[in-house]
Amino acid sequence: MQGSDKGDAAGIDGGQLAIGIVRARFNDALTRQLESACRAELQALGVSAERIVGITVPGALEVPLALKALAGQGRFDALVALGCIIRGETYHFELVANESGAGVTRVSLDHALPIANAILTVENDAQARARAEDKGRDAARVAVEMALLLKDLK
């Protein structure tokens, strides 16, 4: 098996993988940072830039539908969901966080396709800035590792 059981991503090689990224534009500066870190890590793991496809959608609630469209194409080994939801003064935060998360999971299970969910849910801008780069890299590693695991399990 190519996947690691050591608790880290050591030794994983994404050289043969195709990865799709769906990025929400809401909180654009933060989601661009997520995407930049994700793309850099994917390439560090061997995924060629030509095999990374990125699209943008207005916000986190639109991410699952775009993921579903990409999953339906059958050309990706894994997908990545990127977004940033910052708590406000209303219940809208919970609605967007819960529904986008449930949608991402549903698409993954319906298509038996790994989707790394890096839609940040934070209290404020400072928390988002502190997490964006690490979560972008983490999403890339999850996508590659899970894609390789599923290939091994088939």
Rank of each mutant, 00 (worst) to 15 (best):
G59P: 04
R51N: 13
A69M: 14
T56Y: 04
L45C: 11
V63L: 02
A66D: 01
A44I: 11
T56M: 10
P58N: 04
V47L: 09
Q43T: 15
I52A: 03
P58G: 06
L42G: 13
V57G: 05
A66H: 03
E62P: 06
P64C: 11
G46H: 10
P64H: 07
I55Y: 03
I55E: 01
V47R: 05
R51I: 11
R75E: 02
V57A: 09
K68A: 15
V47T: 12
G74R: 10
V53P: 00
V47I: 14
E41P: 02
L61C: 11
A49I: 13
I55C: 08
R51M: 07
E50S: 13
A44K: 14
G74T: 13
P64L: 10
V63G: 01
V47N: 04
Q43E: 15
P64E: 00
G46F: 12
P64F: 13
V63S: 02
I52F: 04
A66W: 05
E41G: 07
L42M: 12
P58D: 01
T56R: 06
G74Q: 04
R51A: 14
V57R: 06
E50V: 12
E62C: 12
L61H: 09
A66S: 10
A49G: 11
E50L: 09
L67M: 06
E41Q: 15
A44H: 13
A69F: 13
I55F: 06
V53F: 05
I55S: 06
A44L: 12
A60G: 06
G46C: 11
V47M: 07
G74V: 12
E50G: 13
R75G: 06
A66I: 09
L42F: 14
I52L: 03
G72F: 06
L45N: 03
P64R: 11
K68E: 15
A69V: 15
R51S: 12
L70Q: 12
Q73A: 07
G54W: 01
A66R: 07
R75S: 12
A60Y: 02
L61Y: 14
Q73V: 07
R51D: 02
G46R: 09
R51K: 15
L61D: 03
I55H: 02
A69N: 10
S48T: 15
A60M: 01
I55M: 06
L65M: 14
A71Y: 05
